[in-house]
Amino acid sequence: MPSASAERGQVTRQRLLEAAIALVGEVGWGGVTTRMVAERAGVAPGVVHYHFSSVTSLLITAGVGFGRVMLDELGTRLAERPGIDEGVDWLLGELSRYTGTDPASLLVSEMFLASTRLPELRERLEELVTRFRSQVAAWLRARGHRGDSEAAATVFAAAVDGLMMHRALDPRLDLTRLAGPLRAMLKEESTA
């Protein structure tokens, strides 16, 4: 059983991670400072560096943790869909909750941009995206896709990412209207 001190440390660490996630959406990856995170989390600035070696380390940990939860949930819930049509429709419906300017969308966009300059972030995001594509490929194979499931999963994931960027530029874009072409692409070599 963890000590009361260890539990308080975990609670503080979680507050720092949550503060970092919120601030990235508000001021951008490069705009987040130790003082801002500490103020948002309700702690002294030195506490940030007690838990993380730098603001960059905090941002990477927070962003990758957020991305892992989001992609794992999408992959798990996609796997529950009985067919390709239902899966595509469900995923586009889920993604329609994101406007492109909401905190989650902004965090993901900022992470992708920051990963072009931060090798550690790029490597960790690559792991997340690779795992998600593997989940999609397994889902496709289980639903009768006979072609190159890994390639189809990669194109599908990239299309979804691109659609989310388009949605940020055009909030009126109805992602659910785009299900037909995506379904056709994925079913092209399927038995289902």
Rank of each mutant, 00 (worst) to 15 (best):
G63P: 06
S134Y: 03
E94M: 13
A79F: 04
L91C: 09
R167Y: 04
A157Y: 14
W90P: 06
L125V: 11
L58F: 07
S96V: 05
V108H: 05
V69S: 07
L71R: 12
L169Y: 13
D89Q: 14
G100H: 02
L173P: 05
F132W: 14
D170M: 04
T61G: 05
L175D: 01
T130K: 07
R68V: 07
L58M: 08
A38H: 03
G144F: 07
V37F: 03
R77Y: 03
P45K: 05
L163W: 03
Q135L: 13
F132P: 01
R77L: 11
H166D: 13
E110F: 00
A104M: 06
V108Q: 06
R143F: 10
G42V: 01
S54L: 07
R97T: 13
L140S: 07
I84C: 04
L95G: 00
L113D: 05
L113Y: 00
M164C: 02
D85L: 02
V88S: 06
P119C: 08
R122S: 12
H145K: 10
L178Y: 09
P119H: 03
R141N: 09
L163F: 10
E39R: 12
A184C: 12
V108E: 05
V55T: 15
M70F: 12
G46P: 08
R146S: 11
S134H: 13
L175V: 02
L173D: 07
D148T: 10
L92V: 08
S57Q: 15
V69P: 00
E80R: 15
L178G: 11
G75P: 10
R167D: 02
V108N: 03
T130Q: 13
V69W: 06
R117N: 07
E94H: 07
E127G: 11
M185L: 15
R122C: 08
F132M: 09
G75A: 08
V155L: 15
G93T: 13
V37S: 01
R122T: 01
D170N: 09
A153C: 05
H166G: 05
A158K: 03
R183F: 01
L92S: 10
L71K: 10
A114D: 02
A153E: 06
E80I: 01
D161Q: 11
F66R: 09
A159G: 14
A38P: 00
H166F: 11
L78H: 03
L128H: 06
V160W: 01
L92Q: 09
A104S: 14
P119Q: 08
V48K: 11
G46C: 05
R133H: 04
R143K: 09
A159V: 03
A38M: 00
I60V: 15
P82R: 11
V47A: 15
V129P: 01
L169P: 03
L178Q: 12
F52L: 11
A151P: 00
G75F: 00
L106D: 02
F66M: 07
P103C: 03
P45V: 06
D148M: 09
R172D: 13
S134K: 13
R143H: 12
A152H: 03
V160D: 02
A157M: 10
D72N: 14
G100F: 04
L106M: 11
V129L: 14
I84H: 10
T130E: 15
E73C: 07
T176L: 09
L58K: 11
E86H: 05
L121F: 10
T101S: 14
R146Q: 14
A41Q: 00
G42E: 00
R40H: 00
G46H: 12
D170P: 02
S53N: 13
V155M: 06
M70V: 06
L128D: 04
